[in-house]
Write a protein that binds this DNA or RNA. Structure first.
Lengths: 345, 345
DNA sequence: CGGTCGACCGGAAGCGCTTCCGTAAACCAT
DNA sequence: ATGGTTTACGGAAGCGCTTCCGGTCGACCG
């Protein structure tokens, strides 16, 4: 029962079962070349002494790790948590261990890329939600492992993500369709990460252009991801001589923050101002926020599956997978009021 | 530069540096018994060929793992993500790898406890946010590793958490202080996890008892964690002949869901109904929800630190650490209206 | 100046497993 | 019956590192 104290080794089991260590190994691993009877005997002995293999020894001997690293800049934000859940689920089934690397700050991030190559402990790495810089790429190369990106475009690595431009257009087109002409945008930026021009931003400009609405620079403000930041950004928009009648936020969290500002300013949603976000964060439905839904968990699953096929030595059918987004109309968007004088009862 | 292809081994480095493998090892590990000059030579060669050790071999040879498992039933929920961030941060600094196990469903969970002992790959495990059953405890024992719990009471393991009863009382006392007498409670339960009576619930009964308010069973409804579920539960409360004038929700997510129901019922918050949650989830401040704040990230950090001291062979100064909670009054709570006829403009 | 003592270093024995290779027995077809 | 396959199995060689156990050798002691 608790004969486990002095960890048994394969050799012990083999001796106890009266076979060679090679045979014991084969029996335990379900390899062929062992008679059913012998195998059973070994299995019994192993069970009896609750033998457990030493993963280190296995890995050393066979040279494969069976481990992948997941690198994410956040965990407490829904998008990332959901993504990691998807990834983990797939790897779990495949019997692969997930090593988690949370690189919140730029420093963490640098440290990670500095360290990782110094210890080849994974067969692959999945980078979640941020673009990889050139220098970092170099370090990654050194590792000589497979790399895939999830939830963020990277022309360099196989990846799965949404079409940011498309998502942005869905949001903008909805607003435009409702009749809005003065639309503000709250651009989300990540202070800790190198920014690259987002499709979500170009969608705004493009949509406006097509609708022949001149671009008013003061209508676009940018804020770090996050509710409080969104609120601040919205305050800026609200303080304009003529505030927008609708706001397109790059994320739901930002949108929810903005909603608070609007409410606090004594304005009503959507009567006075419409607002649309992106993500379909769980909170979106709770606050009845119109948004563009993106399937996050499945992006994670897909990314993990890519890694799996890569690990099998196969080549990817598609180097990039784009998952579809969908407009979820709820009650924060409506046609603009006739009278653009917003402040009124 | 890219001479890394055929991974170099310690032996290679040793040969190249003209020393024995033992010396090379000592040099690389900063052990003593190597002259500064020799050490430098080895280091140079290693750097030149960008040599990296094989962690498997190291672990096999020295018998320690330097890895801990973090087991959590969710990741996409803020509480858990935040917790894991805290844990990861501490371990990162300590040079310990974090193996993530996401056990969403009961099945996953069983599978985890079934599998884990079958492969001793960690030095310790941190269980996040759920009580461990007796059977699972047995499996864990088999592992013969250190265990600590974070964010959930476990008399059995060293743990860090908040005082649920206290938190509940803070919420209830606030409501009571405002003058509410008819207070509903939305109990959060986890379908996938074995439930144990929560301090958050007993706080409700106790507070009422002290305030000499008879307990009305129909005022307590229970719902799984999560906004949608909270909304449903609130609907039940709202359909009572005489609905409560205030509700105490076990979590902010539930509370936010409840707020939607209240709003949709045409009622105003806090004029018609007050509501208070627990957590101080980021969304709480965005929707101006009064709540009881708990420091989640630091709970994670503390738990990780406990593991660290355990790993050093020291004994814990405190087997349990309770972190303080704090009432955050925002604008979803106010004194009850005089007229209990709620439906009016 | 012989001897002792550290400091420095190399050889080699593991760590616990997988797997190659060789052997022996059992099986098949001719 | 006989040569040739298969099938089972054991021995042993690694996998890449740490560490014990000695050896050298110059320094320092009496």
């Amino acid at each position: 029962m608790d004969a486990t104290r002095p960890q048994m080794t394969l050799a012990d089991i083999a001796r106890l079962a009266g076979v060679g260590s090679a045979t014991a190994s084969r029996a335990l691993n379900n390899d062929k070349g062992v008679s059913a009877q012998t195998r059973q005997r070994v299995l019994n002995v192993a069970a009896q002494y609750s033998y457990v293999v030493s993963p280190e020894a296995v890995r050393l001997a066979k040279g494969k790790l069976g481990r992948v690293a997941v690198v994410a800049p956040h965990l407490s934000r829904w998008f990332f948590g959901e993504m990691v859940e998807g990834i983990e689920t797939v790897f779990r089934e495949a019997g692969i261990d997930v090593l988690l690397y949370f690189v919140g700050s730029l420093d963490d991030r640098r440290a990670f890329f500095e360290q990782l190559p110094a210890r080849r402990k994974v067969d692959a790495v999945i980078v979640v939600g941020f673009p990889v810089e050139a220098a970092e790429r170099e370090r990654l190369e050194l590792l000589n492992v497979n790399i895939v990106a999830a939830g963020g475009q990277h022309e360099v690595y196989p990846n799965v993500c949404i079409d940011d431009y498309r998502a942005g257009r869905q949001a903008m087109d909805h607003l435009l369709f409702l009749g809005h002409r003065r639309i503000g945008m709250i651009e989300a930026v990540d202070l800790d990460q190198p920014t690259e021009p987002s499709g979500r931003s170009s969608a705004y400009r493009e949509a406006l252009r097509e609708a022949k609405i001149p671009l008013d620079p003061e209508l676009v403000v940018s804020a770090p991801w996050g509710g409080e930041e969104g609120a601040l950004a919205m305050d800026a928009l609200l303080s304009l001589k003529t505030p927008p009648t609708a706001v397109y936020a790059h994320s739901d969290e930002v949108a929810v923050g903005a909603m608070r500002s609007i409410r606090r300013a004594g304005l009503r949603i959507p009567e006075d101002i419409s607002i649309v976000g992106i993500d379909d964060h769980p909170v979106a439905s709770l606050v009845d926020l119109t948004t563009i839904r993106q399937p996050v968990r499945s992006q994670g699953e897909l990314a993990a599956q890519m890694v799996l096929t890569l690990l099998e030595g196969k080549t990817l059918p598609d180097r990039e997978i784009t998952v579809a987004t969908q407009l979820m109309v709820r009650s924060t968007t409506a046609p603009p009021r006739r009278n653009p004088a917003l402040i009124s009862s």
